[in-house]
Design a binder for these strands. Structure first.
Lengths: 202, 202
DNA sequence: TACGAAATCGAGGGATGCCTCAAGTTCGTG
DNA sequence: CACGAACTTGAGGCATCCCTCGATTTCGTA
C-alpha cells in the first residue's frame, strides 16, 4: 500500500520550506555546485538539518528542479500554439535560453541533464520530447532545415549555456546575438553539407 | 643591464623540462584547473620542486601556453593564404576548434583568455588580432555578413568550447555539425535582424 | 675528494566542502 | 504538565588541493 510520506512535525515542515526556498535561490545564483553550507545558512538552519531533510545534493535538486523544468512545457505549448511553425520554433529557443539565463541551476541541469537523479533526468527528458514536436512541426512546414535533429538541439543547449554563463556579467545579451546567427543557419534553404548528417530517409 | 636568466644546474634544468612536459600533457587532458600535484607526480618530482620552478600556476601556464597559442598564427596565415576569403574564414574556424578539441588547456585558455597572466593574455590577444584580418577579408569580399564582429568570434569560441568539452567523450564530432549550422548563418545574404547589432557604418 | 651553494624533498598547516553522530532541544499528545 | 518521539545542532573527521619551509641530498668546482 502506498503509505504516503509521513506527516512532518510543524517545525520540520517549516524548516523544509525554508530550505527549499534558500536552495532555489542559491542554486539559481551559483549553479548546481553551490556549497550546501550556503543554503543551510541562508535558510537559517544548520547543515545537519539540511542533511536530515535531503540526504544528498541530488535529493535536494530532485525536490526543486522538476517544478522549474515544467516551465519548458509552457514554452513548448506556446510554441505549438503559434500559427507560424518557424516563429514557434524560434520563440521556443528564445524562451528556453531566457529561462537558462535567468537560472544557473536550469542552465546547468539542461547540460548535465541525464547524469542527474532520476526525477531530474525525467523532467529534462520530458522537456526534450515536447521540444521534438516543435522541431518536427517546423520541419514539416518546410521552414526548418530537414537535417536538424533533436540531438542538435542538445548540442545547441550546450553551446548557449556557455555563452550565457560567460556573458552573464559583461555581455548579458550576447546569447541573443549568437542565437540569431544560429537561426539564420537553421532556416531551410541553401543549407550546406553537414558532417555527421544522417542519411536522408528514403 | 639585462642579466639573462641565471644558468640552471644540470639536474634543475632536467627537472624543469620534465615539469613542462608533464604540465603540457596534464593540462591538455584535464584543463587549466588540473591539480599541480598530478603534474609533479607525472614529472617524477616533488610538489616542492614544482613550486621552486614555477611559484604560481600562472607562471607554469605562462611557460606553456604562449607556444601552444602560436598555432593560431599558422592557422590565420593559412586562412589568409587561401584564395577564397570565405573558405579561408571557414577553414580558420575549423582549425581553431580542432585545436581546442585536441587540447583542453587551449580550450580553457581561449575562454578565460584575458583573465590570465600577462603573457597568456597577450598571446590570446595576438591570436584574435590576427583573426580579425581573416574576418575583415571575408567581409570585404562580401561573403561574410557585414554585421559579424570580432566580439562575435569571442562569443562563438565560448559556445564551441562547451560543445567540445561536453561532446568529448560521447560525441567528438558534434562541434563540426554545430559549426556547419553556424557557418550557414554567417554567410552573407538573407541575414535576419540581429539584436545588439551595431548601427550600420555610414 | 671535499666543500658550499643549489636544488630537492615531503611533512604539515591552511582553506574549503562533504557528511556524520552524540548530545541537546522542541513538539504534540496523553 | 510531562514524557517520549521527532527534530536540530555544530563540532569534528574525511577528503582534496593549496602552498611553505627546514632538513637533506646533489651538483660543480677547487
Amino acid at each position: 500500500m502506498a503509505a504516503g510520506p509521513k506527516p512532518l512535525r510543524a517545525d520540520a515542515a517549516r524548516n523544509r520550506d525554508k530550505l527549499l526556498i534558500a536552495a532555489t535561490e542559491i542554486f539559481a545564483e551559483r549553479g548546481l555546485d553551490a556549497p550546501l553550507e550556503h543554503i543551510a545558512r541562508r535558510a537559517g538552519v544548520s547543515i545537519g538539518t539540511l542533511y536530515n531533510h535531503f540526504p544528498t545534493r541530488e535529493a535536494l535538486l530532485a525536490a526543486i528542479l522538476p517544478e522549474r523544468l515544467a516551465a519548458l512545457d509552457r514554452i513548448c505549448a506556446a510554441a505549438l500554439a503559434d500559427p507560424d511553425p518557424w516563429a514557434g520554433f524560434a520563440g521556443f529557443l528564445e524562451g528556453l535560453f531566457t529561462l537558462q539565463a535567468q537560472d544557473q541551476a536550469l542552465n546547468d541541469a539542461l547540460v548535465q541533464g541525464f547524469t542527474l537523479a532520476t526525477d531530474v533526468s525525467q523532467a529534462c527528458h520530458a522537456g526534450f520530447v515536447q521540444a521534438e514536436r516543435v522541431i518536427e512541426r517546423a520541419k514539416a512546414a518546410g521552414r526548418l532545415r530537414a537535417d536538424f535533429s533533436a540531438q542538435d538541439l542538445v548540442t545547441l543547449v550546450w553551446a548557449m549555456s556557455q555563452v550565457i554563463r560567460e556573458g552573464m556579467d559583461t555581455a548579458p545579451d550576447a546569447w541573443r546575438r549568437c542565437l540569431s546567427f544560429f537561426l539564420d543557419g537553421l532556416h531551410a534553404g541553401a543549407p550546406h553539407s553537414l558532417p555527421g548528417a544522417f542519411p536522408a530517409p528514403s
